[in-house]
Design a protein around this nucleic acid. Structure first.
Length: 260
DNA sequence: GGTACGATAGGCT
DNA sequence: GCCTATCGTACCG
């Protein structure tokens, strides 16, 4: 039995979300072009925070999620990068393509991760988590596909709070590898019309996740997330303390609509 | 609520 | 044999 606060079938929910005045489907003026991606890896990783990833599905339905956590993989001397020491393979070729190129790779056999090529040889930004904005019902179905039917329902903040979860929730396939995020009908990035520039203290800088085996590069401050945001995958309380007290109004306040 | 653990799976090198 | 994860479960406060 599926249950929703708003009631109605999945189709109803989809219709309602699509009609939301907040999400105009004619939002070309919000779309980020190639110039946005043409910046150094760390700058792009920070600039992506607060931007909105849009996925237009085959049936025309649009799914949206706000980027709340990223990691920079620099290439070259960055030992944790797939492109460390300039290593170029069939798998990671997208990292060396023009800024804005999508790099999708499979991990642990069953999952995918989505990156965006930046300026810099072999450099790319990993998208680690999103705040679901539009298409929750579809995201929930996509995320539930691989879970046991008996398992507890996912909370809204759990739909996209991990690099492979967001690929599942937004139906990002391996076939998106090497496609251009600045010029693709199925997937793109938008500015959030409601969001101003990041306030001081609103971003946390931390270490990257899951790369413990890479020695000193595991300790580099190359992960960035929106402070206090419920959809961040892994919190770093130490880094948050070192960043000092939260500015008044500096905390990211988010109202998630269901099952929070 | 959180944290920690083992099991999982397939492609890449 | 390693991997930029995730899930279900157990256990703790």
């Amino acid at each position: 039995m599926t249950q929703s606060n708003e009631g109605g079938s999945e189709q109803d929910i989809v219709q309602r979300e699509c009609k939301s005045q907040y999400f105009s489907c004619e939002s070309n003026n919000l779309k980020l072009g190639e110039d946005f991606f043409k910046q150094p890896c760390v700058c792009l990783a920070k600039a992506l925070l607060g931007k909105v990833l849009v996925r237009r599905c085959a049936d025309g339905l649009e799914l949206r999620g706000r980027v709340v956590e990223t990691e920079a993989y620099l290439g070259g001397e960055d030992k944790a990068s797939h492109s460390a020491c300039g290593k170029r393979t069939e798998r990671n070729l997208a990292m060396f393509m023009k800024p804005g190129t999508i790099y999708v790779y499979p991990i642990y056999g069953i999952y995918l991760c989505m990156n965006i090529s930046s300026q810099g040889e072999g450099a790319a930004v990993l998208l680690r988590s999103l705040e679901p904005l539009q298409g929750h019902a579809v995201m929930r179905r996509l995320r539930g596909a691989r879970r046991k039917e008996s398992s507890r329902p996912l909370k809204e903040k759990e739909l996209c709070n991990g690099p492979s979860k967001l690929c599942q929730a937004l139906d990002v396939p391996r076939a998106f590898d090497r496609r251009d995020l600045a010029d693709d009908p199925d997937v793109w990035l938008e500015r959030d019309p409601e969001e101003g520039p990041l306030q001081e203290g609103e971003m946390v800088t931390s270490t990257r996740i899951g790369i413990e085996s890479h020695g000193e590069w595991a300790a580099k401050p190359l992960r960035f997330y929106l402070r206090g945001h419920p959809c961040v995958s892994v919190l770093d309380r130490t880094a948050e303390k070192e960043a000092g007290p939260m500015q008044p109004g500096g905390q990211t306040t988010v109202e998630l609509t269901t099952n929070s």
